[in-house]
Design a protein around this nucleic acid. Structure first.
Length: 736
DNA sequence: AGCACGCCGACT
DNA sequence: GTCGGCGTGCTC
């Protein structure tokens, strides 16, 4: 770092404001020029903000008299390395999002302010020989120093800041004095990786092939590991991580949700004697800061995290793994709408390291990339345990006796399963007791006053709830429209299925797992523990059950209603159906016993169900890809979606119509970009606001991006954009 | 996003 | 007569 010369030194600063630009500031003469990656305090309008220096520069487009001086430099050393800044700049450009907000999103909350990083808590101090002598000499004029010495003498491994703080809030000054006198020194930090704790099991041929392929890649390469549920993808991750750790480098492992971190963490801890950190929204801000600092400082070996952890800096990056890569929760659905999978791939390419995407049901985008040779594909078709894949059967609801959503064969199968002392799992993607309340006399249905949606009756709470906004109402005694003395409930939710099963199997222990029964912290874990302990005989639950958790005792899986997935407006519906059923089916028969999956449907002839029955991902993907190609949908085209919402009906739509005209003018120079007509959203009214959307499509990425950049600029400049709430979603995942 | 400036309604 | 509504303009 050099001191600024007379007035020629400028820095470009990313500020947390929704403006897609950098701001230039003068470095006062005589002060050190902050390096890129350092935070600075700057005057901005009438306030002072904290931003990140992205670059040094000698000249600015702005006239010199309008440039202001930096108010202060927060960090002496950069918080973010040049590679991190390059990644963040790329993301800001790709998603057309303000780079200052992207930078802010990449920093822990405690580093977004103007405070320099706090002492890393894993730093420890221990006694030196001189310290021992001072202690032996007895207490002198400095009683606190003596107490610190005594405490440190009892702990050979040393004490950290938290432990010393317990001795006295004024520990810092006393410790500094002791360090100056060489009585206390910083204890060496533990090595990030110290070796294996257990011998890895022998790899199956499929695993060995994947491990070798990933291990052979020098520099950037994207690997897609497609392994059927239970085929041992985690073991592949462990072996690849082991190789990278042995080289003294770090690994970043991403999972779609917090609930999956504990089991992965414990498997990693059993295998590796290493510093392993988790990073997700369930931590306190202080914990997040510490994990972030350990990763950035190279003091951790493995970081396991959810979506936002894709931004955590690593001093020595060696490998990125993204488990369950098909999971839509990798896409942030509001504000800064990035996709962690795509960011992870870009990040690995910038860092020149391999990235591994794993899934039993890869997204069609990734699978297509693999077929095109852009990703390297490894497939695992076998389970290492003796259990084979479950047998899948369809139950035709139209031609079978059905009671409260449970058909006779499903009921009998559950009974037989119980009789064998095994567990069964029923999947229904619908919470509550009944999804509709209906008047048999006049046809009235209970609607949400703020959304275009029906209200769901939650019987335990005796409330009508809207699952799209926070609305809660009570069930009317009589029909509010015609006065009919009794309204009835229609359809089944998990609460209802739970009840029905309890009636069919009196005395059975049934565990319901959905957002309603696992709202409080630790409740999910508690219920899962009861299931694993074998206390529960039947499990009923929603989507939550499909994600990652293994239930070795479950030998029967029932999909109560797959038709809602079969007929959905979303062009990804068939993909979701295959993924969901395969993932739920994968929960069973993992141990020695084979499993059975029963799918209830009114459309057993649907071609989409055939590959599900045969566990044939390739056949499903061929069908789905052909359909996507015919309809000009991803992965054959790229999409962007302009969404808008406003309090008044048609305000958002009128805005989009104006933006549509604007887009058509702009698209003249990018003819490969197709701008669709704006449409009201599928659920037009939601939480009291009216929504609409406009789809843009192109076969080629580059012209689309070029168009979007100009279009977004024009939208921002238009006065109308201030009358609605709008967002531009690059690569949208949900199209409604 | 904030935060100012700038013109038109109901009130300490 | 003011306090304050949110339209619109700007931030290196």
């Amino acid at each position: 770092m050099t001191a600024a010369s007379a007035g020629a030194d400028l820095v470009q600063v990313a500020l947390p404001v929704p403006l897609r630009q950098l701001f230039d500031y003068r470095v006062p003469a005589g002060t050190m020029v902050p390096e890129p990656g350092c935070r600075v305090r700057v005057p901005f309008g009438r306030r002072t903000l904290t931003g990140v220096v992205l670059a040094r520069t000698a000249r600015s487009d702005l006239p010199p008299e309008r440039l202001k001086n930096l108010a202060a430099i927060v960090d002496r050393q950069p918080l973010l390395a040049p590679a991190d800044l390059a990644m963040l700049t790329w993301i800001a450009d790709y998603y057309l999002h303000p780079v200052g907000e992207v930078c802010a999103a990449a920093l822990p909350v405690l580093l977004r302010g103007d405070k320099p990083p706090r002492e890393a808590e894993d730093r420890r101090w221990h006694l030196t020989t001189a310290g021992r002598e001072r202690l032996a000499a007895g207490a002198g004029r400095a009683p606190l120093q003596f107490r610190l010495l005594a405490a440190l003498a009892e702990n050979d491994a040393g004490l950290d800041a938290a432990a010393l703080r317990l001795l006295s809030p004024r520990w810092r000054t006393a410790l500094d004095a002791l360090v100056r006198d060489d009585c206390v020194a910083m204890a060496p930090l533990p090595e990030a990786y110290r070796g294996l704790r257990e011998d890895p099991p022998a790899a199956t041929p499929g695993q060995a092939e994947a491990i070798a392929a990933i291990g052979q890649s020098h520099g950037f390469r994207c690997h897609l590991v497609h392994g059927i549920t239970g085929s041992g993808k985690t073991e592949i991750y462990l072996r690849c991580i082991e190789r990278v750790l042995a080289q003294g480098r770090q690994c970043l492992v991403l999972v779609p949700e917090i609930a999956l971190t504990p089991q992965l963490e414990s498997r990693f801890r059993n295998r590796f004697d290493a510093v392993i950190d988790v990073l997700h929204s369930g931590l306190t801000e202080t914990q997040r800061l510490q994990a972030w600092q350990r990763a950035a400082g190279g003091r951790s070996a493995v970081v396991i995290g959810t979506r936002s952890a894709v931004f955590v800096p690593l001093a020595r990056p060696g490998l990125v793994i993204l488990d369950e890569e098909h999971d839509p929760s990798y896409k942030q659905q509001e504000g800064f709408r990035y996709h962690a999978r795509d960011v992870a791939i870009k990040r690995a390419s910038l860092a020149g390291i391999p990235v591994v995407l794993g899934s039993a049901t890869p997204s069609l985008e990734s699978y297509h990339n693999a077929l095109q040779g852009r990703f390297q594909l490894t497939q695992l078709h076998e389970r290492p345990t003796r259990a084979g894949l479950p047998a899948v059967h369809l139950l035709d609801l139209a031609h079978l006796p059905v009671e409260h959503g449970i058909s006779r064969p499903l009921r009998d199968a559950i009974g037989a399963c119980r009789a064998r002392g095994e567990q069964s799992l029923l999947f229904l993607n619908r919470r509550g007791f009944a999804p509709a309340i209906y008047c048999p006399a006049c046809g009235w249905l209970a609607h949400c006053p703020r959304c275009d949606a029906r209200l769901t009756w939650h019987r335990a709470a005796d409330r009508l709830r809207c699952h799209h906004c926070g609305h809660v109402g009570s069930r009317p005694r009589q029909c509010p429209q015609c006065g009919e003395p009794e309204v009835i409930s229609l359809g089944q939710g998990t609460e209802n299925i739970h009840d029905t099963l309890q009636q069919l199997f009196p005395g059975a222990v049934i565990e319901r797992i959905d957002r309603d029964t696992t709202r409080r912290r630790g409740e999910l874990e508690q219920r899962l523990t009861r299931v694993h302990a074998g206390e529960a005989e039947i499990l009923v639950g929603t989507q939550m059950l499909s994600k990652g958790h293994d239930f070795p005792g479950v030998t029967l899986v029932g999909i109560v209603d797959c038709d809602q997935l079969l007929f959905s407006a979303d062009f990804r519906a068939s993909e979701r159906l295959f993924q969901l059923v395969t993932q739920v089916a994968g929960r069973c028969g993992r141990a020695e016993r084979p499993g059975t999956v029963l799918i209830q449907t009114r459309f057993p002839q649907s071609p989409w169900l055939q590959p599900v029955i045969r566990h044939d991902y390739a056949a499903f993907a061929d069908m789905a890809l052909a359909e996507r190609q015919a309809a000009d949908y991803p992965p054959y085209t790229h999409l962007a979606l302009l969404r808008a919402e406003a309090a008044g009906r048609n305000v958002a739509l009128a805005f989009l119509e104006a933006m549509h005209r604007l887009a058509q003018e702009l698209a003249v120079t990018t003819p490969s970009v197709e701008v669709m007509e704006p449409l009201p959203s599928l659920m037009e009214k939601r939480a009291g606001r009216y929504r609409a959307q406009l789809l843009v499509q192109s076969r080629q990425r580059a012209p689309l991006h070029q168009f979007l950049a100009r279009w977004r600029g024009a939208i921002e400049a238009s006065r109308r954009s201030r009358t609605v709430r709008w967002s531009l979603d690059v690569d949208p995942v949900d199209l409604y």
